[in-house]
Design a protein around this nucleic acid. Structure first.
Lengths: 116, 116
DNA sequence: TTGCTTTATAATAAAATTATTATATAACTA
DNA sequence: TAGTTATATAATAATTTTATTATAAAGCAA
């Protein structure tokens, strides 16, 4: 992935916020991103995640009925550094979404963890 | 400028390459960018530079008949770090354009410098 | 002044991206 | 099995972005 393609992936509110939320939380499922990005519809979020996955930025892991997205560790180091720098220096950009996420009841991770 | 807006500015080949070339060279005029990005037309380059200027990423300095573009030092530190990291780790992305630039005869800087 | 070089802008067309709506699939639950 | 939840996808419409072409303006040079 060349730099322009990489930045095209970041050049959308839902995609960038999803990446930053996932970077912050380690991994998130679609329903958690829906809770975090409450103003966006499910197909909209799914489609943007599909874009990020197909360009190799995100990985998916299916567990029970949930699909968990995480940052692909094979992403070029510089690109991962760009993501973490952006997160670190713009935490306020996703603060309201992190709050919405933490207000969500019955987050799937907990359920998933407890049944493995 | 929020992170999404910033990345929208980088999400185009001409804009990203112009920024990286300017970051590498310190400052460049439109005709030098035309030489470097030989495949692109003058209005195309001018328009993309206007976008970058109006979002505050670039500054202009007019000298004689030339307009020199440089990175705005007031750009957020994290954004400047993103730019320099991208440049440092993707120098091959602009190498052919740097070569074209250095092949250009009678670069305006020299003329400008010699007549101040 | 006239002409040339450099750069910017405006109008329109073309292309790409994004949103919306509806529907499909898969997995769990009762 | 039937119903429910979670996610994906396809079709189309809407929007945004980009390219192209033509033209304008500004500054220099003869």
């Amino acid at each position: 992935m060349n730099p322009t393609e990489f930045y095209k992936n970041l050049a959308d509110d839902i995609r960038l916020k999803s990446i930053l939320l996932i970077a912050q939380e380690g991994e998130l499922c679609v329903c958690e991103l829906m809770a975090a990005l409450a103003e966006s519809s499910q197909p909209k979020i799914s489609r943007h995640l599909a874009v990020l996955k197909s360009s190799g930025l995100l990985l998916t892991r299916k567990q029970k009925q949930w699909v968990f997205y995480s940052i692909n560790p094979d992403v070029a180091t510089w690109a991962q550094q760009v993501i973490s720098l952006t997160l670190k220096e713009n935490i306020n950009f996703i603060t309201p979404h992190l709050q919405a996420l933490h207000l969500m009841g019955a987050r799937p991770e907990r359920i998933a963890n407890c049944c493995e």
